[in-house]
């Protein structure tokens, strides 16, 4: 039971970091399909910079720098050069998948996967009694998750920036008329998305295992995007959706371990987040007017 809760939190944490990060872009009207790639870039860059410098914090800083640059390029292409956000976003993901594998090979002479020399600190380790058992071996990033959720909530719901982002996404003409710089607001939103995806990637690669493998994200970026939509573009609901999707993942993994006890194939449990998102998007589409493309 305790182990199950720990697994759920560990699987949810990257989804919540990436989901809440992506929320800034999606609220600004950018259906940011490159989140998957940015997460992978973050995971690799953390391991690469961390291994090179010997410090996990410098690793995360490096990952944030890489993701800010990638986000800026993506913004430049879709905002300044009119590129299609979906196709460029898919391209960004392919670039990151290829880039991570290529650089792993070129810089560390490793193929497929590599171990990380550094790992995030885990405040509580080893077998624990009582409440502490629910947080044993969770990384410091996972511990900071509630703070992160609160900051995102503050930024999106209680700050001028959050208001501007929502206005740009929902009523771009009104926002422009009110003097909001649309391009700049989008850039800020996308940079925040990049930063959060670096954290999501770091949690994935150095949160538990301390390793990076080529296809480490395995669609988690797209699941994070689904969590945003499932969460109706709201920070708290997106967090809950991330927890729910992490739970489904944990159930899927456990059913693999206890095969035979349940008759439902693991794959059908793993389908739940995707089917739930489809149903939800369909219901919302049926009952509400389309707000903006991709929303």
């Amino acid at each position: 039971m305790e182990q199950f809760v720990v697994t759920t939190i560990r699987l949810s944490a990257p989804l919540i970091f990436a989901g809440l990060g992506g929320l800034f872009s999606v609220r600004a009207g950018i259906f940011h399909i490159g989140i998957e790639g940015l997460m992978l870039a973050g995971a690799f860059a953390t391991v690469a910079f961390g291994t090179a410098t010997g410090s996990v914090w410098l690793g995360i800083l490096g990952a944030i720098a890489v993701n800010l640059i990638l986000s800026f390029v993506y913004w430049l292409l879709i905002d300044r050069f009119g590129a299609d956000m979906i196709i460029s976003g898919l391209g960004l993901t392919t670039l990151c998948v290829g880039g991570a594998a290529f650089l792993m090979n070129a810089l560390f002479n490793k193929r497929g996967s590599m171990t990380s020399a550094v790992r995030l600190p885990q405040p509580v380790v080893g077998p624990q009694e009582g409440l502490l058992a629910f947080v044993s071996e969770l990384s410091i990033l996972a511990w900071l998750l509630p703070v992160f959720v609160f900051i995102v909530w503050l930024l999106l719901r209680r700050s001028r920036l959050g208001l501007q982002i929502a206005a740009v996404g929902e009523y771009p003409y009104a926002a422009e008329a009110a003097g909001v710089d649309i391009s700049r607001t989008k850039l800020i939103a996308m940079l925040i998305t990049g930063l959060c995806c670096a954290l999501a990637g770091a949690e994935l690669s150095v949160g538990g295992l301390a390793a990076f493998s080529e296809n480490m994200t395995n669609g988690r970026g797209f699941i994070a995007l689904a969590a945003i939509l499932f969460g109706s573009l709201e920070p708290i609901r997106t967090t809950l959706a991330g927890l729910f999707f992490g739970l489904a993942d944990a159930v899927g993994i456990n059913s693999q371990i206890y095969a035979g006890e349940s008759n439902i194939p693991r794959q059908f449990i793993l389908m739940i987040p995707f089917i739930a998102t489809m149903i939800f998007v369909t219901l919302r589409g049926a009952f509400a007017h389309r707000r903006h493309s991709g929303g």
């Binding site: 390029v73 993506y74 590129a83 898919l90 960004l92 392919t94 290529f102």
Partner: peptide, 21 residues
């Protein structure tokens, strides 16, 4: 050169192909 090198080029093509220069 690992095959991922060409994935980079494929990704760059997709990233740039719809941009209006």
């Amino acid at each position: 050169l690992p095959s991922s090198g060409l994935r980079i080029i494929e990704g760059l093509v997709a990233l740039l192909i719809t941009a209006q220069f």
